[in-house]
Design a protein around this nucleic acid. Structure first.
Lengths: 347, 347
DNA sequence: TATAAAAATGCAATCGGTTGCGCCTTTCTC
DNA sequence: GAGAAAGGCGCAACCGATTGCATTTTTATA
């Protein structure tokens, strides 16, 4: 017995006195094959230790059962939750994930997109890098009608499906909440407005101010990468203001910046929320560790990943049509915690 | 011009009046082909918009340039850092990552391993699930001599290469540090000792106790999944002890449990580190948010991922031989922070 | 029972690179 | 300048599954 050669459908065919074609069809549950024959084939395959060769299959069928996932960074709580959600769905449906990160660099994003295209992924799930301005590098996918689903950081006016939350209303809700707590000088730590998520959060914040007749103070809008350092810097910025010109609340577009800003302010003796109320975004684990706990928006990564993967797979299986769906908006609730509770407001 | 057919090496061959074989060799930098011809081929490929078909290639060459990564969970800071490190190296060397999670379930681990084997990954990078007892499901890899590299949670007495840190000495160092701070009743929150990492951390802790003539108190060794809940439960356990029987320090095998234990104890008015000193493990972001900041072991996930990927790729490229390397131990330093500083000890 | 219709199976081309082997040129050596 | 060695390239088989179409077998219909 030749230990080292792989078992192929030809071996099964020979073993059962059938043709390779029949075996192939039998293994793929082709209704053209009779039940009895199919069973014999499946049994034989099992007993012979057959493993289908995905290359041969993909070469011919042009299907890879592989999804490409391209994200800015792998190592954030949100993104790893997204991936976990995707992996779960994909795995359940017999799909594999090829994952790559752009490290917030358009060039790397282009390269990775090209690789995935070349690897003939059946679909692409992508969240754009910090400075991606246009998505012409995805044209090959569009041309070949390979489904692309954007999530979180999506391009403006695109025809592909996007999985998002309503960043505008989430930001609106959080700003409204701060206002209702009695805050009137609300600072916003925002990200690059090139990215929809940050633009929309900014818009929601501004709209809430308008609706409550509060002025939008230019110096209270800081743009950064929302890193730890950015949070610390924002604190420095606040501390450098004369006390009477300081904000009485800070709404940060992510939890990291909020938390590091809080830490720095606390270190200088400011009280939270008495002196400055705080709100973040994402519901990162650190938001439940900082004291006081951080009010935030629960942005459920696993559900985002789940939804994105489910939709693209359903499209691939012909169960639905992505091209008719423009965007799917998931709910993202305001989670009120102590960092913003100036009054004895109860949830 | 047939818009829809892919450009193949045959097109290039025809275009240049060469054979497909030469084109193939030329594209693969085969020295058998002259420099001039090679350049012509590469140029033609570019201008014709050629994209190599990886299936055809893999089918024949039996190489996929794909690495399988199998982890317990994707969504922890440590693991996502590991993945980021791996992705970076892999990408740089033209390898892709297929990532799957076992969700701490052996059965899912087996299934995923089988899928990856079937997808013919060139190598497997794996960290075992919480309750994996044996690794016979990896035998197919061993039999076909597909390199397997374990990291973090590695099997005992295995012949494959493992990327680890010295959990024993890290735990020893941290326990020693607590003892030097004057603690003598040190509790240990540990994980399942089936997993090397937890067993070794327990051993290091015990050895330090012995070396300093401190008794190992059975009730001070709690085993759990080290989740947030487990941390909270541990706090409850401590609070339920009569004050004089309580520990004066807690060494947790991860930061999550440590932090949630701290939070719960603080809520009950215990002072840290005065009443109970704390130390964790991993250097998770939350360790720098909790107040006081948590003393911990810096377990650098990105370096682990980087090392694992580099080693397996070098092996695949024939630049080194994994089979001669049994294990690679990375440094993991003690990071002393306020949670354990009872004296005015300076780093 | 003959015949049409339907079901089941086989034939053989195909997907697109890869590679052992052989053939034809150069280049080198004495 | 003859013979050997090296260099450059092509032939054709191959990797293993898929699939349109032809063929055979079975079932249904008259």
């Amino acid at each position: 017995m030749p230990e080292d050669r792989e078992v192929t459908i030809y071996d099964i065919a020979k073993y059962l006195n059938l043709s390779a074609a029949t075996v192939s069809r039998g293994l793929n549950d082709n209704p053209m094959i009779s039940k009895t024959t199919r069973k014999k084939i499946v049994d034989a395959a099992k007993s012979l230790g057959y493993q289908s060769n995905t290359f041969a299959s993909s070469l011919r069928s042009k299907q890879t059962h592989t999804l490409g996932v391209l994200v800015p960074r792998l190592n954030s709580h949100f993104m790893s939750s997204v991936l976990a959600g995707m992996e779960d769905v994909a795995n359940r449906h017999g799909y594999n994930l090829i994952i790559a990160q752009s490290l917030e660099d358009v060039e790397k994003e282009k390269l990775n997109a090209a690789t995935m295209f070349n690897k003939r992924v059946d679909g692409l799930l992508i969240s754009l890098s910090y400075n991606t301005k246009e998505i012409t590098h995805l044209d090959p996918f569009f041309q070949r009608k390979i489904p692309v689903v954007f999530f979180d950081r999506v391009p403006p006016h695109n025809e592909s499906t996007s999985i998002v939350i309503n960043n505008f209303s989430a930001a609106y809700a959080i700003t409204k909440h701060l206002i209702e707590q009695g805050c009137s000088r609300i600072m916003h730590l925002g990200g690059n407005v090139l990215r929809n998520v940050y633009q929309e959060r900014l818009n929601g914040y501004q709209q809430a101010l308008r609706d409550y007749n509060l002025p939008f103070i230019e110096q209270f809008h800081l743009t950064s990468t929302l890193s730890e350092q950015a949070g610390t810097d924002a604190a420095r910025y606040i501390l450098d203001l004369p006390p009477e010109e300081r904000p009485d609340a800070v709404f940060s577009a992510n939890d990291t910046a909020a938390v590091y800003c809080m830490l720095a302010l606390k270190a200088e003796g400011l009280r939270i929320p008495e002196d400055v109320a705080f709100a973040g975004f994402n519901n990162d684990p650190i938001s439940r560790v900082i004291e006081p706990n951080l009010t935030t928006i629960d942005y459920p990564g696993d559900i985002v990943g789940n939804t994105a993967a489910t939709n693209i797979i359903n499209h691939l299986k012909g169960l639905s049509n992505l091209y008719t769906t423009n965007s799917i908006t998931l709910r993202a609730d305001l989670v009120i915690r102590a960092s913003s509770l100036k009054t004895n407001y109860k949830n």
